[in-house]
C-alpha cells in the first residue's frame, strides 16, 4: 500500500480525496492545509488521516510514498522542492507554475532527487477525449490535417473559485492550459502559435475569451477556442468539444458526449458519456472520472517505475505554450 499525503484541501481537493478512496494500492495517511479547519475536515473525509497545518512538518514526521499538491500555482515551487528534498514523489496540480523558470526548477529538483513528478493535467484522462485519441491513433481517419478544440460556456465558475475573478491571467491559465495540452496530445508538438484574447465579462479582471491557432510538427493546424461568456442552451459545461479531420475521415466529439466518426459514404456514432463516480454528480462527472483515472495512472507508474504521461518534463511543453499565448496576445505577434 502506497502512503500518500495531501497538501492543500480547498475546493478541488474534495475530488482528489474522494478519488483516492476508490484506488487500490494507495491510501491517504496525512492531509495538510494552512487553514486548520479545512485540514481537519479533509482528514475526517479521508478516513482518519493525520492532520497538519504545515507541509514541512508533515513531510518530516510522516514516511510518505508520495504527496499530492492541490494548491494554487505560486505555492508549487517551494512545496515541490520541499518534497524533493525528502525524496518523495510528487503530483502537482495545474497550472504547474506561474513562470517557466519555476516549472524548470521543479522538474530539475525532482530529477536530481530521483523522484517522479506528475502534473495533474487531467483533461487527457477524460474518457471521451481518450476515445477521440484512440480513433486518431488507430489510423481510422488517416493523417490529421486540422483540429478544432473548443470549450465555450457561461457556467458560473466564480462562485466556487472566487479568486478567478481577480486573476489578471484568467482563461488561458485556468482552462486554456488543458486545451493546449490536448492539442499536443492529439496532433503532436506545436511549432507556432498565435493568440487573441478578449475580456468580455466586465466583472472579471482577466481574459475570458481566447482564440488560438497552432501549427503542429506533422503539418496539421489547430484552432483552440474557449470562452466563459458564451450563452448556450443547454450549457455544455464542462465538456470539451473536438473535431479532428484526417486524410480519410473526421472524428467529432459533439455536445452530450456524442462521438461521431465518418468519411465519404460511411459514419458511425457512439455515446461516450462517462460514468458518474460514486462520489460524483453531473455535470462534474466528466472531470471527476478523469481525476480517478489520472490518480490510478500515477499509482501504476509508481508501482512499475514508469514515467507518467503528464510528467513534469512533458508538462514544460504545455506550460511553454501557455506563456507563449500570453506573450502573443500582448505583442500581437505569432511565435
Amino acid at each position: 500500500m502506497l502512503k500518500g499525503g495531501i497538501i492543500g484541501c480547498g475546493f478541488f481537493a474534495a475530488n482528489h480525496l474522494a478519488a483516492w478512496q476508490l484506488i487500490d494500492g494507495a491510501a491517504i495517511v496525512a492531509v495538510c492545509d494552512q487553514d486548520p479547519a479545512r485540514a481537519r475536515a479533509a482528514g475526517a473525509a479521508g478516513d482518519g488521516a493525520r492532520v497538519f497545518d504545515d507541509a514541512a512538518t508533515m513531510l518530516a514526521s510522516e514516511a510518505l510514498d508520495f504527496v499530492d499538491i492541490i494548491t494554487t500555482a505560486p505555492s508549487h515551487r517551494p512545496l515541490v522542492e520541499l518534497a524533493a528534498r525528502h525524496r518523495v514523489p510528487v503530483i502537482c496540480q495545474k497550472p504547474f507554475a506561474p513562470t517557466l523558470d519555476d516549472a524548470r526548477a521543479m522538474v530539475d529538483a525532482c530529477a536530481q532527487a530521483g523522484v517522479p513528478l506528475m502534473v495533474h493535467e487531467n483533461f487527457r484522462w477524460q474518457s471521451p477525449l481518450m476515445a477521440v485519441k484512440n480513433i486518431v491513433s488507430s489510423g481510422e481517419i488517416g493523417e490529421p490535417a486540422y483540429a478544432r478544440i473548443s470549450f465555450r460556456h457561461a457556467y458560473d465558475i466564480y462562485t466556487n473559485q472566487p479568486y478567478l475573478k481577480t486573476e489578471p491571467q484568467l482563461a488561458i491559465m485556468d482552462l486554456g492550459i488543458h486545451l493546449l495540452d490536448l492539442a499536443r496530445y492529439f496532433l503532436g508538438e506545436a511549432t507556432r502559435l498565435h493568440c487573441r484574447t478578449q475580456r468580455v465579462n466586465p466583472a472579471v479582471a482577466g481574459e475570458d475569451c481566447v482564440t488560438i491557432l497552432l501549427d503542429h510538427a506533422g503539418g496539421a493546424v489547430s484552432l483552440v477556442d474557449f470562452s466563459f461568456f458564451t450563452k448556450l442552451e443547454p450549457d455544455p459545461f464542462p465538456q470539451t468539444l473536438v473535431r479532428i479531420e484526417g486524410t480519410k475521415g473526421t472524428v467529432e466529439l459533439l455536445a452530450g458526449y456524442h462521438l461521431r466518426v465518418s468519411g465519404p459514404g460511411w459514419s458511425r456514432e457512439e455515446d461516450v458519456e462517462p460514468a458518474v463516480p460514486a462520489f460524483g454528480a453531473k455535470p462534474w462527472h466528466n472531470i471527476q472520472e478523469s481525476v480517478v483515472n489520472i490518480q490510478r495512472h500515477w499509482i501504476e507508474c509508481l508501482q512499475n517505475d514508469r514515467e507518467p504521461a503528464t510528467s513534469g518534463a512533458d508538462n514544460l511543453k504545455t506550460i511553454d505554450l501557455v506563456f507563449r499565448a500570453y506573450e502573443s496576445a500582448a505583442t500581437g505577434r505569432a511565435s
Binding site: 481517419i141 488517416g142 490535417a145 486540422y146 478544432r148 487573441r196 478578449q198 475569451c209 482564440t211 484552432l223 477556442d225 479531420e245 484526417g246 486524410t247 480519410k248 475521415g249 473526421t250 465518418s262 468519411g263 465519404p264 459514404g265 460511411w266 459514419s267
Partner: peptide, 16 residues
C-alpha cells in the same frame, strides 16, 4: 473588437 475564426477547406472527408 470582435474576434472571428474563418476556416475553409476542400479536403474534409466527412459524411454527410
Amino acid at each position: 473588437g470582435a474576434v472571428c475564426a474563418v476556416t475553409c477547406t476542400y479536403t474534409n472527408r466527412i459524411d454527410p
